[in-house]
Design a protein around this nucleic acid. Structure first.
Lengths: 215, 215
DNA sequence: AGGTGTGAACGAATTCACAGCC
DNA sequence: GGCTGTGAATTCGTTCACACCT
């Protein structure tokens, strides 16, 4: 048996991905071997992750996809809902900060469809953008960020401002009570402990994808 | 002394970020303590990383920012150039696959300015998009991907198609000889060993940024 | 046979500790 | 005193090995 202890970050990362794999899985059965073939993770690692997470309903010929999905979702607190399922569940409100090219690309709900996230607002310090852009949720000038975030109970932000203003904006978000930031800028953000940052800089990713294996 | 061995992936990741930090550093001197304050990494970890990478020009009162920058760039093969510097250097060609909201947001060069990357092409299977979108590099229908990639010597791709076609497109990219993929879809891509994938799914990032620390 | 659950064994990454330098 | 370079010690993550199930 395994005590309810904080899951390691690496495991969480894999489980979030596994959830995506399961979402698109054709069959209703899956084995650690099959997962391994799709992901490259060692079969023991997969079983071990599942074990850490407290799941032990696997039978000798694999896992039940639906059951595994809901188990992982619950363990991670993700509530990755199926399109049909409209059960009452925690909605996590988020916002987009910076409506330049990248931010403006996120102005429709499609990304968060069937997820437990809901985009409630977009912000930009450029009033023109705020007025001219069309979106499926309201846009506001950046100076209204603080009270809107509080009023709308927004907990997470997607940061798509330009590098120069990234740190300043992050600080404003933190002051407004934001709990997590998806950072699409190239900047290494400095945030107080307790605020989680996930870095998604495309340029940094390109730099990491360079393959200088000497072989 | 330290033999020229493959750098661990974690170290590479930190170094790419450190490079960004140095790029914006106001002073020309920096210490491991200062880096730690900005990034949260333990000071020993920073020194250790630098050591792994073979750098040992730090004096007892810190590092020379410019020198450290070029050293890291070289060690990683990144050639992170300063705006002024127009030295001859390896250009890494890349392309954007999928010109939906996200892909269309990347149709100008600004992201790769001052980097060693150059976007040479955009692809989409929707001919209408290919014709109507404006960009600072040519756009092509997806079925011309293979020969354009070869002709233009494109090595890296940013994948911004919708989830349903992600795996198929990735396979086409691999067949065309692509070496690395920045994967902005939610799909866990299955690629042959030797092809590097960096996952940048915004939705997955949101799921990871959820903070269920029980404290 | 082909699968899971689980702890132990192993390997990788981080932190500690301290000598040496300015 | 405050800093780096570096190996050793420690912590953390992955893989192995095997009992058990169907």
């Amino acid at each position: 048996m395994n005590t309810i202890v904080e899951l390691p970050e690496v495991t969480r990362k894999r489980m979030v991905q596994l959830l995506q794999l399961l979402k698109a899985w054709p069959d209703n059965k899956i084995t650690s071997v099959a997962i391994s073939e799709s992901t490259g993770w060692n079969t023991s690692l997969i079983r071990h992750d599942l074990w850490l997470l407290g799941y032990n309903k696997g039978v000798s010929n694999g896992y039940q996809v639906d059951d595994l999905r809901t188990a992982i979702s619950q363990a991670l607190g993700i509530e990755n809902k199926l399109p049909i399922d409209n059960s009452e569940q925690a909605i996590r409100n988020c916002c987009i900060v910076g409506l330049g090219h990248l931010g403006a690309a996120l102005l429709n709900d499609e990304m968060t469809e069937n997820s437990s996230f809901k985009i409630k607002a977009g912000f930009d310090s450029n009033l023109y953008r705020v007025e001219i852009l069309r979106s499926s949720f309201p846009l506001y000038p950046a100076n209204e960020m603080n009270w809107i975030i509080k009023q709308e109970k927004i907990e997470y932000a997607i940061l798509t401002v330009k590098d120069e203003t990234a740190q300043t904006m992050a600080e404003k978000l933190v002051n407004a009570g934001i709990k997590g930031i998806v950072n699409m800028t190239n900047v290494v953000l400095k945030v107080p402990e307790g605020v989680k940052v996930e870095n998604l800089s495309i340029l940094n990713a390109l730099n990491l994808v360079i393959n200088n294996s000497h072989r």
